[in-house]
Design a binder for these strands. Structure first.
Lengths: 354, 354
DNA sequence: GATTGGCACTCCACGATGCCGAGTGCCAAC
DNA sequence: GTTGGCACTCGGCATCGTGGAGTGCCAATC
């Protein structure tokens, strides 16, 4: 869609979108002029509105109602009419500060990100924890919980930590377990689950069991990366008058169960394209047609990565949502870089940060 | 409250509660007799109903409506009128089967429990992951992520695994880190965070840093045990007609944010008392007055433990909820026992299981 | 040719009205 | 103690009328 509207039409569309987002009521020519002086009469505005409706940017709920933006109208608004603001600095500082509190615990990043997104946008937020699509082994440990029950802890290259319980057929002491892990660890460092499984075939009884389990864990971690999602701000969903009453909110919550929403969203996500906005029927999944989605990925290049975003009614504050998503994704990317990046990269990054 | 109703009054109360739970509409004398033959006329039922209302077991929404159970009415029903059924065996088998799938991953137990509770009860479920109120150290590992960034993994006696990132001032190789952990691990096994912190004081630079961090992690784990909660079945909340429309559902969701609901519920939870039912205004917290809570704790004696339960409208299927909560709590307790119990205990437990 | 004021028309939201059905409470009779 | 009868009550629902906001069109004007 190219910009194809006259200056005045653009102005009117912009005001109608803003006004509708603000009030939630269809906007009429007169009431629009009461708030904004356009230097023309209602009749003129009406004729322009008629033109905009002709071109599918606006719609009437019914004959004697005002105009409401269509998905196409929102799209044009987001594309060409939105003042490209970034998040206010005080809020940036607050966010950075909050993240600093949990800097050390990687698992809490995603939770915090979800909370921040929800609170700042006033919408439902979704965040996937940082994961790698191909998990490679970093390190594992065997810890004796009690006789014949061992805890296997695996750390992947991407920093994901997993633990599984390993029942053994015979009793094996902590010393033996430590020796085993010391022997195996160097062998499987940086290998994928397939490679480890191949190794397991040739190995002895106990090592074979352990290696098999490790391979399983790695494979599982990759699978879960496709389905684990943290959501926050459910209460905001109900605050939306247009969603709260109908069965719409319920549908949305159902989509969240078991991360089903991810398989709906991911196919549409273009990685590394900054913030993406998907409005109403632009969503491939029909369930999401009543909603707008603001998405971004974070992390980078084969390292741990994920995506985050917010979902709300198409009548959402796009400017605010986009700047929030953009900023939080940046913060998450920075955090990940601080862990995995080589020193060179890190230095240049910190310089950029000033 | 002692049983204080005549046989016929009890029957009528029971039928009214059941009928109201089934239909959600106030129950009248005539419509009650249409479904159930009590061998008496509507007028008789009416007079009994009047008596029950007198005693606060029933209430009228308005003059010409049927009767609705009061919280007191539900209480009497749960206490004396409920047929004490256990969960149907096929469902028991399904649940056991589902847990067997994730047996090895301790972290997924709570999630699964929440999903099962929600699906079987058709209500919102809450589950806290198994935690110990006094965390003691089991084992830790140091893993070099990259130069000067180390991942510290701690495993507590209760089996909780935590990871934190440790920035160092100077570069230290994996070999040195492994040596350090091998030296320190035996020293701090089974210690609390306070004891470890005391040890840290006298230790050298790096060991001191590590021990301090470990103590922090332990302390944090204890704190989080008080606030971490998994909820499932939010969509069911909205299906409840009496909640979906009002702002009530929203209030409930707000309570869930950040585990605030735990601090509301825990003070009222008596541990080791089987399944507890808290109905409406019996809840100390006013926010929960519109709801009924079915709660149980699981786990045992200083080991990892937690609680689980469901929250729904006071008009809930108490029989089903209670039996579900009871069964799932039993399953969780069994699972934990299989990990931590000594072999003796385990044997007798398995024998009981047959 | 664009803009404007005027005007008829449309339709929703909202309150008032009336009716029906379900339910109650009471009472006299059994 | 139980019953049938009866007057009464009240919410729910449909119907109706009104007012306001908004539109579309057109002829007049700049």
């Amino acid at each position: 869609m190219q910009p194809q509207l006259s200056r005045r039409q653009s102005t009117i569309l912009k005001l109608i979108v803003q006004e509708y987002i603000r009030t939630g009521r269809a906007v009429g020519s007169k009431s629009l002029l009461e708030r904004y002086d356009l230097g023309v009469s209602p009749a003129t505005v009406r004729s322009e509105m008629g033109e905009l409706e002709e071109q599918q940017f606006l719609a009437h709920p019914h004959t004697s109602a005002g105009r409401v933006p269509t998905d196409r109208g929102y799209r044009y608004y987001v594309e060409y009419l939105l003042d490209d603001t970034s998040l206010p600095v005080p809020e940036q500082i607050t966010i950075r500060h909050q993240f600093r509190q949990v800097e050390a615990q990687v698992e809490s990043w995603a939770k915090l990100a979800a909370a921040v997104l929800a609170d700042l946008s006033g919408n439902l937020s979704l965040v996937t924890p940082p994961r790698s699509s191909v998990e490679r082994m970093r390190h594992f440990e065997l810890i004796s919980l009690r006789s014949r029950v061992v805890l296997l802890i695996t750390v992947t290259q991407a920093g994901t930590v997993r633990e599984v319980i390993l029942p053994l057929t015979e009793e094996i002491g902590q010393e033996q377990l430590s020796a085993l892990s010391q022997r195996l660890n160097p062998l499987i460092r940086d290998l994928t689950h397939e490679q480890i499984r191949r190794l397991a075939e040739g190995a002895g009884d106990l090592p074979g069991l352990v290696l098999h389990q490790i391979a399983d864990v790695l494979r599982l971690a990759e699978q879960e990366a496709q389905s684990e999602v943290i959501a926050e701000g459910l209460d905001y969903v109900l605050q939306q008058p247009e969603l709260g009453h109908g069965a719409l909110a319920q549908r949305l919550l159902e989509l969240l169960r078991g991360g089903a929403i991810l398989s709906v969203l991911i196919p549409q996500l273009k990685t590394g394209e900054g913030v993406q906005v998907i409005i109403g029927t632009e969503n491939r999944a029909a369930e999401l047609h009543p909603f707008a989605v603001v998405l971004a990925s974070y992390g980078a290049r084969g390292h741990a990565a994920g995506f985050l975003g917010i979902i709300g009614p198409t009548r959402m504050r796009y400017g605010r949502s986009i700047s929030t998503v953009r900023y939080v994704s940046q913060v998450m990317t920075d955090l990940l870089r601080d862990i995995y990046e080589t020193d060179d990269e890190e230095r240049s990054h910190h310089e950029r940060g000033r």
